[in-house]
Simulated assay, not measured.
Amino acid sequence: MNILDDLKLQYKLGGIALKMIYWNVACFLVSLVFFYSFKVGVFDFPSWIALSSEPAVFVLKPWTFLSYAFFHDGFLHLFFNMMVLNFSSYLFLTFFSSKQYLGLYILSAIFAGVIFVLGFNLMHYSGAIIGASAAIMAILVAVTTYSPLMNVRLLLVGNVKLWHVTAVILILDLMQFRLENSGGHISHLAGAFFGFVYIKLLQNGIDMSKILSIVLDFFTNIFKKPATPFKKVHKNYQKPAERPVSKIVVKDKKQQQIDEILDKISQSGYDSLSQEEKEFLFQAGK
């Protein structure tokens, strides 16, 4: 099994958080090829990806209220965002479902984009933003709002309360609000606010992530192939011939082996698998 097959298998077996990290990394690699100037050493994102505060731009390109949340303007920007995303995703998915995770990520990114546009126009600024920080802040603040006293272990620090980590990040954002990247900090704080409101509404029985589920189900049903009408066929009853038991035994044995490998992944991680086990899972998933 080569590296590409290994990555495909990890993507297929991984949860929504790993898939989101894969998408962010993939978008960064695409931008590195098409939007990075090696002469100047900076990214130049087009107006159909970055979210601009100019009404004449975002009105004609409304998808940028979401597309900006999957691209990053540097390796360090991507690296630190993915570290926080991995950390907060693990905690969030301890309590909530994958659909809620995806809904929160997308809806918070859109909300933060709207607040950025409104804020910049009210302050008579002009600019554009890029990055997943707003959506990541929403996930982090959401799980912190739900379980603020959860103990988390940080490298070189030790055990701390989850709200301590979130508070430090929010304070740093507030301190840098007027120094640089004002648009980015506006979107970060807007994402944090959305994560807080999301949990408070959820605790009162309102799940905003269902909005996304309804939209996705709508488009899925549009492109879904119509089911073949059931035709009832009358036949004379005959006692079915006995089938060899061996096929069932082989199938059960194969499924049992898959289950054992998946249990091993859940306990020790994907890297604990042997090469033969990875190969077996890859072939079984075809």
Rank of each mutant, 00 (worst) to 15 (best):
Met1Ile: 09
Asp5Tyr: 08
Asp6Gln: 07
Gln10Tyr: 03
Gln10Leu: 03
Ile16His: 07
Lys19Asn: 10
Lys19Tyr: 02
Met20Leu: 07
Trp23His: 04
Asn24Asp: 12
Ser31Gly: 15
Phe35Val: 10
Phe38Arg: 11
Lys39Ala: 06
Val40Pro: 01
Gly41His: 02
Gly41Gln: 07
Val42Phe: 08
Val42Ile: 13
Asp44Glu: 14
Ala50Glu: 14
Leu51Phe: 09
Leu51Pro: 13
Val59Asn: 01
Leu60Pro: 00
Gly74Asn: 06
Phe75His: 05
Phe80Asn: 06
Val84Ala: 14
Asn86Phe: 12
Phe87Leu: 05
Ser89Val: 07
Thr94Lys: 15
Phe95Lys: 13
Gln100Arg: 11
Ser108Arg: 05
Ala109Trp: 12
Ile110Lys: 02
Val114Asn: 04
Val114Ala: 14
Val114Ser: 10
Leu118Trp: 11
Phe120Pro: 03
Leu122Glu: 01
His124Ile: 07
Tyr125Pro: 00
Ile130Gln: 02
Ile130Asp: 05
Ala134Lys: 08
Ala138Pro: 11
Ala138Leu: 06
Val141Glu: 02
Ala142Asn: 11
Thr145His: 11
Asn151Tyr: 04
Arg153Leu: 07
Leu155Glu: 04
Leu170Trp: 10
Leu170Ala: 09
Ile171Thr: 08
Met175Ile: 15
Arg178Asn: 14
Arg178Phe: 15
Glu180Gln: 13
Ser187Met: 03
Ala190Glu: 03
Ala190Gly: 08
Phe193Glu: 02
Val197Trp: 09
Ile199Arg: 08
Leu202Met: 14
Asn204Glu: 10
Met208Lys: 10
Lys210Met: 14
Val215Ala: 14
Phe218Ile: 05
Phe218Glu: 10
Asn221Tyr: 10
Asn221Thr: 08
Lys224Val: 07
Ala227Lys: 15
Pro229Met: 00
Phe230Asp: 12
Val233Ile: 15
His234Ser: 09
Lys239Pro: 01
Pro240Gln: 00
Arg243Gln: 15
Arg243His: 13
Pro244Cys: 05
Ser246Pro: 00
Lys247Cys: 02
Val250Met: 10
Lys251Thr: 12
Gln256Lys: 14
Gln256Ser: 15
Gln257Leu: 10
Leu262Met: 11
Leu262Asp: 00
Asp263Ala: 13
Ser266Arg: 04
Gln267Gly: 00
Ser268Leu: 10
Gly269Ser: 09
Leu273Met: 08
Gln275Trp: 02
Glu277Met: 04
Glu277Thr: 03
Glu277Ile: 05
Glu279Gln: 11
Phe280Asp: 00
Phe280Met: 01
Gly285Arg: 01
